[in-house]
Design a protein around this nucleic acid. Structure first.
Lengths: 169, 169
DNA sequence: CTTGGAATGTCAACAAGGCTGACGTAAACT
DNA sequence: AGTTTACGTCAGCCTTGTTGACATTCCAAG
């Protein structure tokens, strides 16, 4: 049985993908994701924070003034789940929540100085590893990496991703 | 603007990586991993199983007869955590645990017929998405994807990964 | 041969962080 | 005025990670 073949974009790009190749891809994804989160996780343990806090800080940093609802869509969790995390961050003075001017139902979220500091610490740790990996693999590999990751997202998430990318140039 | 330039593999590999590029890489990783696990997760909800069960089934399938300790090293969790998952799988007749012949302390793990069936179902779902992503991105992108992921792993995990790959050809 | 430690695996209890459901409040919309 | 939207919160559940205590088995030193 011819398992996987396609003519891709141009011409006859036949692409045979064995189950074994796909298994290896899946395992690579698993191990790499562990590495990807390992450094910030290490920093967070002992601060009574977890990966969920990192994610919130990351996306608030990237889109200051975003609303709770917006963050919910990006993170793909329930508001109860997000709220627990957000509450502790606000209590600890890392995140500020401002009532919306035009729509007073909305809360706009911003990082405080302390929040920015922690976000930077976490992201720096994560970026150091990514930078090393990108350098080691080379620019063409990085382009391929990005292409595959985008193709692997849910379409909805791909739109979110594109929107975030545009929003920051 | 030439953001990332290099002389590729040989020679002067100059590679400028802005923080913004690295942020995008991190976000791509986050969204893609969600997509990567979405399909098997959907199957598992309602079966009182979770992602941890999938991982156990996956690696037992790939290395039949492996010991609990071995699995521990691959999965990177505590033995207590793994044991809970393993116990339910054994109770439900998906995994068989045989006392070691030479060393009776060890338990060798095998998938039963039912275990193989569920593993196949989960992996098929995951592979379908990966296959689509790989096809869409093209073979060169896939090669780059693999290179970056390997570079992103902890060295210890990279060794594990290589060992698994060899073990299956 | 015995004994003490190391290795392997099991049981119990707890915490983080997902989830659903229900409810309340304030603001906006129609 | 009534409905919908955005947000917060309480209560309770599940999965899956953690540490601590314990049983069994093996092995090596005395």
């Amino acid at each position: 049985m011819a398992e996987a073949q396609s003519a891709a974009k141009s011409g006859e790009t036949l692409l045979y993908l064995t189950d074994e190749q796909l298994r290896q891809g899946a395992e690579a994804m698993f191990f790499a994701y562990r590495g990807f989160t390992a450094d910030p996780d290490r920093i967070l343990t002992g601060l009574s924070y977890g990966r969920a806090h990192h994610r919130a800080l990351h996306f608030i940093h990237g889109a200051p003034g975003t609303t709770v609802n917006n963050l919910l869509n990006i993170l793909g969790v329930t508001k109860q789940s997000l709220n627990r995390v957000l509450r502790t961050l606000i209590e600890d003075g890392l995140v500020e929540s401002k009532v919306g001017r035009t729509d007073k139902r909305e809360r706009h979220l911003y990082l405080t100085e302390a929040g920015e500091a922690l976000e930077r610490e976490l992201s720096d740790a994560q970026r150091a590893r990514m930078r090393a990996a990108f350098r080691q693999a080379g620019p063409e590999a990085v382009a391929g990496f990005r292409r595959v990751l985008e193709a692997m997202m849910d379409p909805e998430m791909r739109r979110q991703f594109a929107r975030l990318r545009e929003g920051r140039g």
